[in-house]
Design a protein around this nucleic acid. Structure first.
Lengths: 296, 296
DNA sequence: GAACAACGATGCTCTCCCGGTATCAACGTA
DNA sequence: TACGTTGATACCGGGAGAGCATCGTTGTTC
């Protein structure tokens, strides 16, 4: 097989059609260049150049090989550059899991951060619930997870990503919707509340349970649902009131009114970033580093 | 820059994830292999492998580079093979010029020969008149020409490709068309003959002039045309009789009848293969060699 | 037509890279 | 704790490749 050095030598000679000039371009003397080309021709088993004392010309085989040689060299240079970018985290691929609700908050920051500061890196997105994300992290099919706070194993690392307030979502015809200013949690006493499922949306479920318990309020749980947007859809048709994270207000519904909420003890909806402790992917660490600057 | 040897080494280690086994596969010992990989990593400025005493693992950069390395190696092997094929004439590109009439005779043989015996070679076809073909040969835009016999310069070589008989083409309503057997040239005395143009179809024109002169026959020249197929089109509508090469009988016209012709002195329509004496394209010579076996 | 200039090929020498052998160092296991 | 496994290191020898000097051929010029 031939050598990349032989290829650069051959390309130089083919372009100059002159051994001495090509040798100058390659910063070497003419004799070893002549030998290199001869060696290359011998390795390939084909004549690449017709040389007389007065002229050097490409044979058809030489013309064909020139194109191939240029491609191989270009590809090699590109590979050398690309691998350096991957090792510094400038390029690479990160698979990010997210919960449906996080699409309205920190996921946007994450994507714009990546696009602005690491334009050559690819972010692959997967919507999954918290439990599945943690499993996917463990079996390497996810690099980074955006999940609700939950118990994680010792091989995972987590850091809080966002903390947002709960707001009230009310049908526009509801009496509380016509009130000015913030609502107090006490006003939810006896209200028909669209509640989060204790299984699929365990985090929200337990959060709301504790919020109502500490305020000594008992609403009427009319329906159990797992997704914020399905809850809002039911608020929209007047089936009850709900408590949702404030960024969910971005989900516009014509008949839904959002109102700030006053709580006796502060409660916030949190979202964590989680990744494998042993994951040394430079792109992941570059992204985490950039995110740390943008997320309080 | 790195070396192709380094790439094969790296691919072996990346596939085995074990230096000693990879070294065995490469038919070398482990220490130089370790050094090669280290040198490669140094050249690239990136860590490709995480090695402990008990395990070797690819870094993200290593995974990225593995794909690139495989591509480069595959491409290199392909290039080495391809150039050998071009140099033996198995592959390559030949531009062939042909006259409209030759499309019915030797061009078919030429194409099928090329397709059967040199499947990896590409034949580019250009229809041109004889004079233009000879000019195109001279300025390298044609490798091989199919032309009527004509004076050629010393830098061109020619060999006869086909020699075919003249046949008579008659309107089906013509009295001679109803005769059984061959026609004698004498029977063309005074007939309305569709004649070849003395400029664009000089070869045919001069051939027919000499045929009639040596037989002491004087037909009536009704029209001058340059292409065989336009002559046959006029025979088809009854505008006269004509003499055409026998392969032109492949051009079917409903009202045209072909008949063999008896001549006092034999005359044949010839077609030559012409190429540059200095053209050393192996594909051209391979094709010429194969054609010599098929053309008498 | 002879001298010269230009250019690629060749012979020789030296250096440095690469591969092999022997050995070390670290880590896991019995 | 001793041993086995595995990658890293030290050292040595051979060969590939670079440079220098020179040759042989060919086209040019006076």
């Amino acid at each position: 097989m031939f050598t990349l050095t032989q290829l650069t030598s051959f390309v130089a000679v083919a372009e100059e059609l002159h051994f001495t000039r090509a040798a100058q371009r390659l910063r070497m003397t003419q004799p070893p260049l002549s030998r290199q080309i001869r060696q290359l021709e011998h390795d390939l088993g084909a004549q690449l150049l017709n040389r007389t004392n007065k002229s050097v010309q490409l044979t058809p085989a030489g013309r064909a090989f020139l194109a191939e040689a240029r491609t191989i060299l270009r590809h090699s240079e590109h590979a050398a550059l690309a691998v350096r970018q991957v090792s510094t985290g400038e390029a690479g691929s990160i698979t990010v899991g997210f919960t449906a609700a996080s699409a309205h908050s920190v996921l946007g920051t994450l994507l714009s951060t990546a696009r602005e500061t690491m334009p050559r890196a690819e972010i692959v997105l997967r919507e999954m619930v918290t439990r599945d994300q943690l499993a996917a992290l463990a079996n390497n099919s996810l690099d980074l997870a955006l999940v609700r706070p939950s118990a994680i194993g010792p091989d995972l690392v987590s850091t809080p990503a966002v903390k947002e307030q709960l707001v009230a979502a009310l049908p526009s015809t509801h009496e509380l919707a016509k009130r000015q200013g913030a609502l107090h949690i006490k006003e939810f006493e006896g209200q028909e509340l669209l509640m989060y499922s204790p299984v699929e949306a365990r985090y929200f479920h337990e959060l709301l349970i504790s919020v109502f318990r500490s305020a000594h309020v008992t609403p009427v749980y009319s329906q159990y649902l797992s997704q914020v947007h399905s809850i809002l859809a039911l608020v929209n048709v007047g089936l009850g009131v709900a408590l949702v994270p404030e960024t969910a207000a971005q989900l516009r519904h014509p008949e839904v009114v959002f109102k700030p909420l006053e709580l006796p003890t502060p409660a916030a909806v949190e979202l964590d970033l989680v990744w494998r402790r042993t994951n040394d992917d430079p792109a992941l660490h570059a992204l985490l580093h950039r995110l740390r600057e943008r997320i309080p």
